[in-house]
Amino acid sequence: MSTYITKRLIYTLVILLAASLLIFCLYALTPGDFISGNIKLSPERRAELRAIYGLDQPILERYFTWMNHALQGDFGDSLAQQQPVLKLFKDYVWNSFLLAIVSTFLTWLIAVVIGVVAAYKQYSWFDTLVMIGIFAAMSIPSFFIGLFLIKILAVDLKWLPPGGMMTTGSNATGLAYFKEVIHHMALPVIVMTLLGVGSLTRYFRSNMIDVIKQDYIRTARAKGMSERKVLFTHALRNALLPAITLVGFELPALFGGSLIIEKIFNWPGIGQLYMQSFSLRDYPLLMGFTMFMAILTVIGTLLSDLLYHVADPRVKLQ
């Protein structure tokens, strides 16, 4: 195990190094930047700012300078926000994490329960309704669902606020602050759960259908075990094994999957900041966020491999 982890960490460092070079070159070679796109600056001021930020240097020299600072925990300053990139991450990333972790928990919980029941009652009216709902959830765009729920739940029924994280001018603290945040995050969490539960339910349903046809399931039933125990103890555990591989994609999706949702609901998260940086061509912040996503991806892949070994000891790590 320790040898495997050591090898994977070495591979991870190599992958991240290659990813950092690709990410930097991608943004560095993109035409235009925050300085050249600012029409209020004179040509002399633009040249001065490009020299201050090192944008007039060769690409490889700029990359090694950026990488040297990144290894010391400094990803540069946002040109638009005039703040360190890491400080902006600390200010916004936890808001995105709160939104994503709640929706991910609800998505997996709902997908597991509905997927198991739909597989057990295959070809029933319940299974038919589930399949219709799955394809509907997978085909409707996120912005349409978001705007539709805002119209119904926020504008017409006035049950939930249409956006933001807090009521404008609110100074709530303690329990009142907690309740207000929960109230505001309800709509975006509902939308993110609806978007994710479709594909995941279909995944669990197909896995459960394959598992419940196995011989050991028939043996468990022949021993007189209750159907609930057979499904949720024996069948579900083995059906979850392939789903563990999805963990590698879920970790970066916690922050990258809510970009449009945060923009629609004006949620002050890292996704909305990322979208704003695109329009402003704030490349230091864009490079920092993309590198952050690359780190989460390789960490998630490593965790999925380790969890698969823990869940199924027959899998050998070499």
Rank of each mutant, 00 (worst) to 15 (best):
205 R>G: 05
192 M>A: 11
193 T>A: 05
250 E>V: 12
309 H>A: 15
294 A>F: 06
179 K>D: 04
313 P>A: 07
11 Y>V: 01
132 I>Y: 03
191 V>I: 07
168 T>W: 09
144 F>V: 12
217 I>G: 05
249 F>Q: 13
84 P>M: 01
293 M>V: 12
66 W>D: 07
174 G>W: 12
308 Y>F: 09
114 I>E: 00
43 P>N: 10
165 M>P: 11
71 L>H: 10
195 L>E: 09
275 M>E: 01
136 A>N: 04
35 I>K: 12
235 A>N: 00
36 S>C: 00
138 M>W: 00
158 K>H: 03
209 I>H: 06
45 R>P: 01
134 I>C: 06
201 T>G: 11
60 L>P: 14
37 G>I: 00
127 D>I: 02
278 F>I: 07
177 Y>S: 14
20 S>E: 01
197 V>D: 09
237 R>V: 06
246 L>V: 06
266 N>G: 03
40 K>A: 12
136 A>H: 02
284 P>Y: 07
231 L>E: 10
254 L>P: 06
74 D>I: 06
27 Y>H: 06
2 S>D: 04
57 Q>Y: 04
19 A>T: 05
300 G>W: 12
291 M>F: 08
168 T>Q: 12
256 G>K: 15
36 S>H: 06
130 V>P: 03
88 L>S: 13
61 E>Y: 14
239 A>S: 14
308 Y>Q: 15
176 A>D: 15
40 K>R: 12
185 M>D: 07
102 V>I: 14
168 T>M: 04
221 R>Y: 13
96 S>E: 06
54 G>D: 12
188 P>F: 03
166 M>C: 01
274 Y>V: 08
239 A>G: 15
7 K>A: 01
74 D>G: 09
97 F>G: 01
167 T>E: 06
38 N>E: 13
